[in-house]
Amino acid sequence: MIVGELKPLAEIKNMVHGYRRILVVGCGGCVTVCQTGGLQEAETLARLLYMDDPETTVESLAVPRQCEWEFLEQLKTAIPRYEIVLSTACGIGVQAMNEYFRGIQTLPALNTRFLGMPVQHGLFVERCQACGDCMLHRTGGICPVARCSKNLMNGPCGGSKNGKCEISPEIDCAWQLIYERLKVLDQLERLLAIQPPKDWSHARDGGVRKMAREDLMLDEGE
């Protein structure tokens, strides 16, 4: 999932300062699971902004997913009643809102942090960087692009100690995990093969990425 974290309230207040009619739009997707940007959190944020300045009208609602036009369509009648929109979706939702509702600005209430998962209640950890060329079959199902601080391809650097990354004792060394996993899978020989330089053109280095599925596209006027 996409993991989002609420921006500091002071920053949000600063963004909406001077607006009298504010709509907070939550998203029912990933950020609901993170409990940072769903309907509940949008309502809480609206209340906080209202308490800060009772002269303003702050209302909230949520759509199932802010990243799909069909759900944004549901907001068509509500949107014109406000001066500004605060989105508690990820950066994709914020951009979709701005693109769909040209006449009003949608501001980000969250910082989109990473693609990850809750490894335990309340602890989300990065798992994927969408490099566009998955190599998990070679690394025992542990991603060195997302989980090694230097995205190394050929094993741990000299800073791996007691299973931890040199940059923080809070971060597991991805290559230690890969090593242990491949040992269990009896595939340690994979580590001996020199991995050639990665083709980063499939990652964001190749420019904005698109995926076309012609089989899913609708004909004009359909």
Binding site: K150, L152, I194, P196
Partner: peptide
């Protein structure tokens, strides 16, 4: 060399590269 991570240095805000690793 791979290189020390930028978080140790005096520009921890820097974007790192690591396009290649030391073996590559």
């Amino acid at each position: 060399l791979t290189g020390d991570h930028q978080s140790f240095g005096n520009h921890p805000q820097a974007k790192n590269v690591f396009d290649l690793d030391s073996i590559q």
